[in-house]
Structure formats: C-alpha cells, structure tokens
Design a binder for these strands. Structure first.
Lengths: 231, 231
DNA sequence: CGACTGCTTGATGTTGCTCAACGTGCGTGG
DNA sequence: CCACGCACGTTGAGCAACATCAAGCAGTCG
C-alpha cells in the first residue's frame, strides 16, 4: 500500500498542499518532497491507531478521514479531516505516540512526511513555526467549543452543532450527502446511535430539515441555530 | 492593583520562573524582565474574562488559579494552575482574545509578560519555540483525557479522576487540604454540586477516603484507580 | 444576634441509554 | 436469478443515571 512518490512528483508544483506550507521556500519544499510517501486508503481502513508510534505527519490530499479517541466501550470522534488539511498529533512533541486513532471514512489519499524533517523546518523557519502554532491553537479552541457542547448541551443542541459542523466546515454546502454513518454521527455528538436517529427524526417532524437516506438538507437554519444556542 | 516590578527585581535571578524559560539566555531574560508587570490577586478575584483581549502572557508565581469556560448556565473548569506555571491562551496566535476565564482560587501573585515580546522570542529562539510547542501539546493531550473522562465515564469515575488530578498534579501530597469549593469540584467533573457531594459521601462509606471539612485523605488508592478505570 | 455563604441530605422528575425487535439495502454464492 | 447473510438503520418500552428542588445545618462576618 505504501509507494514512494507514485503520482505526485514534487511538493513545489503540488497545488493541493495545505496552506501551512505557504511559508516554505522552494528548497524547503524540496526537502519535504524527498522525504514524503504517498498512500491510498480505502473507506473503513485505519490510518493509524491510538498508542502507536507517530513517525509521520499525515496530510490528507483526497477523501475524508475521522480522528477519534477509543474510550470505554465507545469512541468519541474529535473531528473530520478533509483535503487539503493535515492531522496534527500532539504526541509528536511529547512521547512520539498517537493520542487518537484515524480511519478513512471515504476512500483517501494521503502524503506522509517524516516528523523529523517537519520539526527541523519548524526550527529553521519562524514564519512556518508561527503558522504551525496558530493551527495548533485553532485546534485547541475548537476542542474547547466541542467540550462545552458535549458536556453542557442536551442532545438536540449537540446534534445541531454537529449538523452545522458538517454543513459549514466539512461538506461546505447545504443540501449535502452524508458520507458518515449514523454511528459516526452519534460518536461526534457523544450519544448513542439510537438517540441520534431519534433527534434527527424530531428535527424532521418539526420541519427543521429533510433527510432521505443520506441526503440531508437544513431547511430552517435560524431555528437550528436557536436549538444549538439554547443548549 | 498593577505595580510594575514591585517585588521581583529581574527574571535572570528569579528562582521561581517556569521551566519553559530555561532555554532563554540572560539577554533574552532581560528583555522579558523589562516588559513584565507583577500583580497580586485576592482569592475569588477574576484575572481575566473569556472574550476579552489577551495582551499578556500570565505566569503564576504563588497561589492557585482556576481556568474555566463559562458555558450555558454553568462553568466547566479546564484545570488549575499553580506556581510556577503559566496560562497559555490559545487566542494569542489566533484572534488575540481569551477563550476561557481565569480566577484566583487562593491569594495569588502573577507576572504579566507582553505577548509581543513573548512571540518575538518564540521566533528568535528555536529551543524556546520547541519547548513552547511541547507544552501546548501536553495541554492538548490532557484535554483529550479530560474529554473522555467527562463524556464517557459515570460520576464516580469522574470524581476519582479529579481526586487523582488534585492529589498528584496540584497539591502533590496525599492527605491534602482542599482549597477549592465543592462547586469547583463539581465544575471540574462536569456534574452538579449535589452529585459531587453524594459521590464523595459514597467513597467515604466504602472506606476509599476520609473527608473532614476540607481535609481529604485517599485511603485506598488501588480501589480509587479501579473506579476511575472501570468508567 | 441575624444574615449570609457554603455544605449536606432526601424526594422527585427528567434525560438519555440499553435492549430487543424489526426493516432495508447490498453483496455473495449457489 | 434468487436465497441468504450481514451491516446499517429505525422504533418502542423500560430503566438507570443524574439534575433539580426544597429544606435544614454549620460556620462566619458585620
């Protein structure tokens, strides 16, 4: 499954690289080019497991990935990663272990960059370091919002939050095709699959959205926003 | 309340500085010295509020501080900060706003360092930057564990986690004197004050701990660990 | 002494999970 | 082509977990 430089020739010319790389010079991008692998994952395949060593920095170049923590009996999905974004494992700077797992939700391609090369560039290019810290900070802020949603809102509010996340951040359109399962929806919102389905049904009955199979359209954004905010 | 350089003369000689500063040279520490303020807070006072601008990097030099998110009707305490540690607001690199509030739990002294000075040093000293990213990563990992505890464990497991956090990370001794209220205990473990009290009572009845007023001793660490792990 | 704050306890109501049953679409092998 | 198995989705009933409410208690400060 791992083939070195199969289809992408060089990161310099790559037009699907994450925007954190915008601060890198051509020579620096060459360094990354020479150390990277490109990999294909089929839907459902695990990209890495929580607890395993973390020698690569993973950039998703196509498809959709879920990152999740394997907890006590059930999983919590921290978020979805779509092209062109990367998966930052906080373990890179701590114990070199992954602290969450990642699995392909849709068929995916990814670039794997050697962590040491990445860390060297962080040290050598302050603009790159700043951009990286900014990304990590954004991640942290998102986590805070998620924690509040998960611990202080009731189920309708949590589902509303997840629907906004999907339509605004992931699929970026309003009628959208769910590529994740109801179980994933439940794992994103910290509830049982049955509860997630029930809330969606209630939203349908209230006219907030339509849902046929996996085709979902939010009809009343204002009311959904209200549901999200009232907790 | 703000007095410039009241009691600490110079960061170079300060023996109570956070270990992230160990990578800074004397001239660099001088730069920090010249831009810092020292401040005293009384127990209960708010150090900064969620949503306000974030011009300072705050180091706690004595006392105890809680950092918390103000949610929907109740607060969630993300953690406690004790000397000599600092409060890293992720907003520094994003929107220059605080994304959580901080308040003194015990009487406190703190050093306020200008954020721009701090960011300049991050750019100029890669060792310092690495150490900083490492700290941010540790924070993120801690957050993950906290989210799992809050969303997937039942109340006894969550209280157990908080008790370990207090005895191992904050007070660093086993019979310890609680300086936080029961409400804070509840906000740390994401439950109502009444529930927190009830769980503590159950632990007392099971012989896991003793609690007289605010004097708490964990008697059966093994069983408490078991309660934490079984969820 | 009285008001206030934090702590404690029991009674009651709600939320959300579990379990069990059933439906539905899809791929596989006969 | 059909039969079957399997994974995912859906629904309802019952129950456990947890919050809320209400009342009472202890310490403390003016």
């Amino acid at each position: 499954m791992v083939n070195k430089n199969t289809f992408a020739s060089n990161c310099v010319d790559c037009n699907c690289k994450s925007s954190i790389f915008k601060h890198l010079s051509h020579p620096e991008l060459d360094i990354i080019s020479n150390s990277k692998f490109q990999v294909v994952y089929k839907a459902g395949e695990i990209i890495f497991k929580q607890g395993t060593p973390s020698p690569y920095f993973v950039c998703i170049t196509s498809g959709l990935v879920k990152i999740y923590i394997e907890g006590y009996g059930k999983n919590l999905i921290l978020g979805l990663v779509k092209p062109v974004d990367y998966i930052f494992g906080p373990g890179i700077y701590v114990d070199n272990r992954h602290h969450y797992s990642a699995a392909a939700v849709e068929d995916c391609t990814a670039c794997l960059i050697d962590v040491n090369v990445f860390k060297r560039l962080i040290r050598e290019n302050p603009d790159f370091a700043d951009e990286f810290i900014k990304r990590v900070s954004l991640q942290a802020i998102f986590n805070f919002e998620q924690v509040i949603s998960l611990t202080q809102k009731q189920m309708p509010g949590r589902i509303a939050d997840v629907l906004f996340y999907l339509s605004e951040k992931i699929y970026c359109q309003n009628p959208f095709e769910l590529s994740i399962t109801r179980q994933d929806l439940a794992d994103l919102s910290g509830m049982s699959k049955e509860s997630a389905i029930r809330i969606l049904k209630e939203f349908k009955e209230e006219g907030v959205l339509t849902l046929h199979g996996n085709h979902l359209e939010i009809l009343n954004i204002k009311q959904l926003r209200h549901i999200s905010e009232k907790g």
